[in-house]
Design a protein around this nucleic acid. Structure first.
Lengths: 158, 158
DNA sequence: GACGAATAGTTTGCATGCTTACGATTTTTT
DNA sequence: AAAAAATCGTAAGCATGCAAACTATTCGTC
């Protein structure tokens, strides 16, 4: 029956998506290992170059989609290496503001270039229309993710 | 210029792919937490139901695309829980053969159903042709991954 | 103004990925 | 046959994700 075929298609899609995600991450990590950046330390650097200051740790955690303790520990490392620094927020003394140091900005550019280079390499030979077709699919999957998640948490009426 | 636009497209694709991969994984993990299965323990179970015996630990590691030590530790946990058991391979006494227990097979079916259910939910509203279009893109990206990896290690002349 | 709830950051403990180093065994070379 | 190289599983140590519990501060309600 056709349902079996659809099931196989869905399984195959899930497997490929998962495999591609990890393989891509590994490729970037491999290329950035030479810059002294391990696994996940380059992401905070990249996002600090992207977000508009002032950036609190919570903002960074939300942007990176990781939990606050993970951010705190990563920033400990990056601060020790002199790539970022934390300062008190005088508006709200619970918060700390995070910024890249001069050296951090230098690394940020290198990271951005390296990440872009990998993307360019991996996406070579794929047309714009194919990319946008994938976007469309990705977006609808994310919508499905949100609607199911709504059931678990609580829908916020706008 | 058009190059800037292409660059943005590639960045956007990378970000969405990464975000979708982790979000999907979290969704499955969330649904399987109730079955007492944490983060990555369900994958060995699933693959043990998929691979044709005899399955050595190395085979499992290759299938899961994780390193041998990671597999060893996961199997320690699963063995302690009575889901798998290891036996010596009489063909090659370095190896150990891994199999699901009766209970492990029961859990394997539940895991498979749960994973399929998530896939079905997330892929609802997406047509077969869209899925295959994505396959095509994924496959070419994986090809690009392989060819670039050749350059880093050592190309084997055929 | 005072008290309870919410929020920001940290600490701690666990899960799980990797790399490196090791012992046991097999395969290959000489 | 003996020695060298490769392979299998394991152990130890690090990196990094999470959740839970804690402290300090701010907000909301009375």
């Amino acid at each position: 029956m056709a349902d079996t075929e659809r099931l196989e298609r869905e399984r195959s899609f899930r497997r490929r998506l998962a495999r591609l995600g990890t393989a891509w991450r590994r490729q970037v990590d491999h290329d950035l290992r030479d810059y002294g950046l391990t696994e996940a330390t380059w992401r905070p650097v990249l996002y600090l170059g992207l977000l508009l200051p002032p950036v609190r740790q919570t903002d960074l955690a939300r942007a990176l989609e990781i939990e606050a303790p993970s951010v705190a520990r990563l920033l400990d490392v990056l601060e020790r290496r002199g790539l970022v620094f934390r300062s008190r927020d005088h508006e709200d003394r619970r918060s700390k503001l995070v910024r890249l140091t001069r050296e951090g900005e230098r690394i940020e550019r290198q990271v951005r270039d390296a990440v872009d280079a990998v993307s360019h390499r991996l996406l070579s030979g794929i047309s714009d229309s194919e990319l946008t077709a994938c976007y469309s699919v990705f977006d609808r999957i994310e919508e499905n993710l949100c609607t199911t998640r709504m059931g678990a948490e609580a829908a916020v009426p706008s």
